[in-house]
């Protein structure tokens, strides 16, 4: 226990020190190396731009829109992925029939669908959510499918020997056994949802951090691009953290793992 807490203390100290070094390098490094500010604006310029965008560019509105799309895409994509994972996991015939198409769709780069969805649905929020759904779907589905496939058959036999119904086997064995891999999939999904949404916003529309990214690029406003990237990281980080918090509550029965959760 003692060694562990000292590891946490030393690790935290090193982390904070590294942060300070990076921020300082960001602030003074470009000037010292003679890098022009339109390539790498110093930290203070990015912070000024952040304040300006808060006041003038409705930064929080754009962030809110992106966050909303991320949440919608993540929730819907995860639900769909989990649903298909369970159905295919329990029906070998369905899996056999559908696997080539699923594989094809999984290989196709999902973000390439963004222009198509915008053609279909216009410059609304929906195409962005749809890209996120598509990109979130696969890691969740594959993890659930594998989890259901690899449930210990002896556990299922144990339940069967007690005369369990198919529904009981699912709810008392297969579903709880699938939760750890499901959450592993959700963690990946939470970060991918941001990717899907941003690509959608980059392609078309005038809302969201992806739009600000494209707009800043058009204006050669590098600081604006930096602000958008930072805000996207914050949105993704909050989504990831939310998954971890839920995971720790749901999977509380697992032996304590390292809290880093990465």
């Amino acid at each position: 226990m003692n060694g562990n807490s000292s590891l946490v203390r030393r690790g935290t100290a090193a982390s904070v020190a590294l942060l300070i070094v990076v921020l300082a390098a960001w602030q003074w490094g470009p000037g010292l190396l003679g890098i022009p500010t339109f390539i790498i604006p110093p930290l203070s310029a990015v912070f000024d731009e952040f304040l300006r965008m808060l006041a003038v560019s409705a930064l929080m509105t754009h962030t809110g829109v992106t966050a909303l799309e991320v949440i919608a895409g993540f929730v819907l994509g995860s639900l769909l992925g989990a649903f298909f994972g369970y159905v295919l996991g329990m029906s070998p015939t369905a899996e056999f029939a559908l696997s080539p198409y699923i594989l094809a769709l999984q290989i196709a780069p999902k973000v390439a669908f963004a222009p198509l969805f915008i053609l279909w649905m216009g410059f609304t929020l929906y195409p962005k959510i749809l890209v996120a759904i598509l990109i979130v779907f696969f890691p969740v589905m594959v993890n659930v499918l594998t989890a259901i496939r690899t449930v210990d058959p002896d556990l299922v036999n144990l339940a069967r020997a007690f005369k369990a119904t198919r529904a009981q086997i699912f709810w008392k064995i297969e579903f709880p056994a699938s939760l750890p891999p499901l959450f592993a999939g959700l963690r990946i999904a939470s970060t991918l949802a941001v990717v899907g949404v941003v690509v959608g916003e980059l392609v078309g529309g005038n809302l969201g951090l992806g739009y600000l990214l494209a707009f800043g690029e058009g204006q050669a406003n590098t600081a604006m691009v930096f602000v958008a990237i930072l805000m996207l990281t914050v949105v993704g980080g909050i989504a990831y953290l939310a998954v971890i918090l839920v995971e720790q509550r749901v999977l509380h029965y697992l032996p304590r793992r390292t809290l880093s959760g990465v």
Binding site: D154, L155, L158, A161, F162, K163
Partner: peptide, 15 residues
């Protein structure tokens, strides 16, 4: 499967 028998294996199969 019936309620008259119950089995136990080498693996404890605890959930």
């Amino acid at each position: 499967p019936n309620a008259h028998v119950a089995f136990m294996l080498q693996k404890d199969l605890l959930l």
